[in-house]
Design a protein around this nucleic acid. Structure first.
Lengths: 124, 124
DNA sequence: AAGCATTAATTGTGCTTGCATTTGATGCAC
DNA sequence: GTGCATCAAATGCAAGCACAATTAATGCTT
């Protein structure tokens, strides 16, 4: 029956909607209060640390959920806190490199523990 | 091993993050362009139609993902389009009733087809 | 090598959101 | 019934987002 199928889809969607919002809010609040960074900043920093060195902003954006402008501004906020650095890319001067600073790596390590705790609580 | 467990949790979280954002964006755009309402408005309208009559705003908010103020403003937008009506609740004059109008029910029926299509495409 | 489409990043703008506060109604304690 | 905590909804406000336009660099075509 097609109505049953629709009911299932909607139920799955609502589940996704509420789960996402619950976890995202909890994570955002915990990261903000314990480490002074929001969820988007942490996600960007997390990927930067993971990738290692010399990551181009465009590359970073390609596997993130944020728009180009939102990511650019998230990096702004990280930079203002001294957690990442932008540097020129000599090969292609349109691009820029973004690298975590030492402080950024430390902050990331600390914040990862918070993420772990929250994710275990909500998704564990 | 605890590192493996962490990796699994983070992977699940990223999956949730990207799935949610992909589906939510697709739904929002489709609803907006085809029916002139955003995702939050549709979700509120959907629940109002589902519940039936004489739904109190507070009750509606209790099983939604939005904050109280965000819901209040989503209802504002629906009301401005003539899709729902607010009315006084005589039992408790702090509360208000919110009901879909005939136009609202029609819009909801049309928009439901769009939701069905998008959900089937992304979650089917 | 000149012109033009394309690309990476930034910036201007308006909208939606959450938080905190406010407004107004209820009801409990005394 | 007077005061006070509580509750429902609305509103002021700042932050983050997406979209569109902009800036600056690249490289393809002729």
């Amino acid at each position: 029956m097609t109505a049953l199928r629709e009911r299932q889809l909607v139920d799955r969607w609502r589940e996704l909607l509420t789960t996402y919002n619950t976890v995202a809010n909890a994570l955002d609040h915990a990261l903000q209060s314990e480490h002074g960074i929001g969820l988007s900043e942490f996600e960007a920093l997390d990927r930067l640390v993971e990738v290692g060195d010399k990551c181009i902003l465009k590359t970073l954006g390609s596997d993130m959920y944020l728009s180009q402008s939102a990511l650019s501004r998230a990096i702004d906020r990280l930079e203002r806190q001294g957690l990442v650095e932008r540097s020129m890319c000599d090969n292609d001067r349109r691009s820029i490199f973004v690298n975590p600073t030492d402080t950024g790596r430390q902050r990331h390590a600390a914040a990862s523990a918070t993420r772990r705790r929250i994710l275990a609580e909500y998704l564990g």
